[in-house]
Write a protein that binds this DNA or RNA. Structure first.
Lengths: 142, 142
DNA sequence: CTTGAACCTCTAGTAGCTAGAGGATGTAAA
DNA sequence: TTTACATCCTCTAGCTACTAGAGGTTCAAG
């Protein structure tokens, strides 16, 4: 039986985060000692590792919930699992494309500024006037 | 004089967001009609455009606050501005590197799964066992 | 003068945690 | 056995950057 602290160390997940996952129903309620402290078994360690690894790969908690559900039903076709993974891959690729455009623009800004006063600063000038931009970067966030 | 709705359309920023920027002190308090409605001038339009464009380039609101402050002091050296931009560029590059690693891993997962039952699903297998991963992707988020 | 779009404030919600207060428990050494 | 102290507990509030909605008021055109 593992304490929450041990589980935390083994998975690299903060104690608070483990309790949070329990609260939102991603982790099951563990057993408790007489004094009320949580005690975990290996199944729960595996589950948390799965969650943790999925998070590292950028899956949302909602997606992870779906993946865990599917993982619990071994005889279903894995098309749904694949679909979730492909969706994630697509999202990652979209973000990369966006970041690439931002990098281009930022590089140009930084490059063109040759260190005078802020009044003549190319960086500020570009920020003031969108028309100086070469690439599209309309959306915000992600 | 512009209404908040007109300002919203001109900059592509939602009305609620403009009020939010005012609340956190990023936009100054505008003039008001007798009835209490906000009215903006061109300086405020410029400022909001600046904010909007900076957001599109991924700057945080805190960074934008710094940029606006510097922009208001035309005689200071623009090194600080450059530093902020370079910091942003670095962050973008870090995120890109991370996404690249994720993409590699996700592609491999999706590729190796040939559509059987979830019990044999390669995607789930990789998620269960980090050691199957080739790339590093320790951090979460960003 | 009426209508209706646009405005107002205020509260609460989103994702995915993180931090801290204030107090209880578990364990190992003295 | 007592004491020390790390770890645990619950609960609340905070973070970024908005977004949505309730319930009510103002503006401008006809």
């Amino acid at each position: 039986m593992l304490t929450i602290g041990t589980l935390s160390k083994k998975t690299g997940t903060k104690v608070q985060t483990i309790r949070y996952y329990e609260q939102i129903g991603l982790m099951p309620e563990p057993g408790r000692t007489e004094g009320g402290q949580r005690r975990y078994d290996n199944a729960q360690l595996d589950r948390l590792s799965f969650i943790r690894h999925s998070r590292q790969l950028g899956f949302s908690l909602d997606a992870i919930r779906e993946l865990l559900d599917l993982s619990d039903q071994p005889n279903r076709p894995c098309e749904e699992v694949d679909a979730i993974a492909r969706r994630q891959l697509k999202q990652v690729e979209q973000r990369m494309a966006r970041l690439k455009a931002l990098r281009t623009e930022l590089k140009r800004m930084v490059h063109e500024c040759s260190g005078g006063r802020t009044a003549d600063c190319k960086v500020l000038e570009v920020l003031r006037d969108h028309s100086e931009c070469l690439t599209e970067h309309d959306e915000i966030g992600a």
